[in-house]
């Protein structure tokens, strides 16, 4: 595609240096980074209809029906967003193929497949202090007893709506998916919150 030759720019590209510095200065307590350009496809369909089964076959993953859960496999993560809504997240560059595959799977069944890869960007928030950092602005209980691997949630962090995803290893932190227009605000908010964890001044 011709676009490959055009410079891409992610919503938090301008903050990459500061996120890296906050990571270094925390002395291992935190890791903050943007995970840009992840493929994200929004899928809406009747979970009891034939389309759900077709999508399961196409993805090799079931669409989770338990609220607030996600499943992983084959480099993809499927997040429950609502009783008839999921977000399929995959590696950079796979959105077009993924969208086409899902659309083909659904066929004439009613449903919606929408490429929303640029709608949100993803922040990695990990490290031993990750939970405390998010707790400054998130009212959900992110304790491993309540929000371990396999959990995801839509909620608010600070004053932005986010999708939170517990990473697949226990205590390995979170993905924070945030609308691109709010990303700068949220990253600044996280960087400010990380001030307390500066133990290695540069």
């Amino acid at each position: 595609m011709a676009a490959d030759t055009v410079t891409r720019r992610s919503p938090l590209a301008h903050l990459a240096g500061r996120l890296a510095r906050a990571t270094r200065q925390s002395g291992g307590a935190l890791r903050l980074a943007e995970l840009p350009y992840l493929a994200q496809i929004n899928v809406r369909l009747d979970p009891k209809g034939p389309a759900a089964e077709a999508v399961r076959l196409a993805l090799g993953l079931p669409l989770p029906t338990e609220p607030g859960t996600c499943v992983r496999g084959g480099g993809r993560t499927v997040l429950w967003l609502g009783p008839d809504e999921w977000l399929v997240v995959g590696p950079d560059g796979t959105a077009g193929d993924l969208e086409a595959r899902l659309r083909a799977a659904i066929g004439d069944e009613p449903g919606a497949v929408t490429d929303v890869s640029a709608q949100r960007t993803t922040l990695l928030v990990s490290g031993p202090a990750a939970r405390d950092l998010l707790a400054h602005g998130c009212s959900l209980d992110l304790h491993p007893r309540a929000f371990g691997p396999g959990r995801c949630a839509q909620s608010t962090l600070a004053r932005a709506q986010v999708v939170l995803v517990a990473r697949d290893q226990p205590r390995s932190g979170f993905w924070v998916l945030v609308r691109s227009s709010f990303a700068d605000y949220l990253a600044e908010w996280l960087l400010d919150a990380a001030t307390e964890h500066v133990t290695v001044p540069e």
Binding site: R44, L45, V116, S117, Q119, R179
Partner: peptide, 10 residues
């Protein structure tokens, strides 16, 4: 049979 998805920032 209709579904709506925000694509404002897409």
């Amino acid at each position: 049979r209709v579904r709506c998805t925000s694509v404002t920032e897409q």
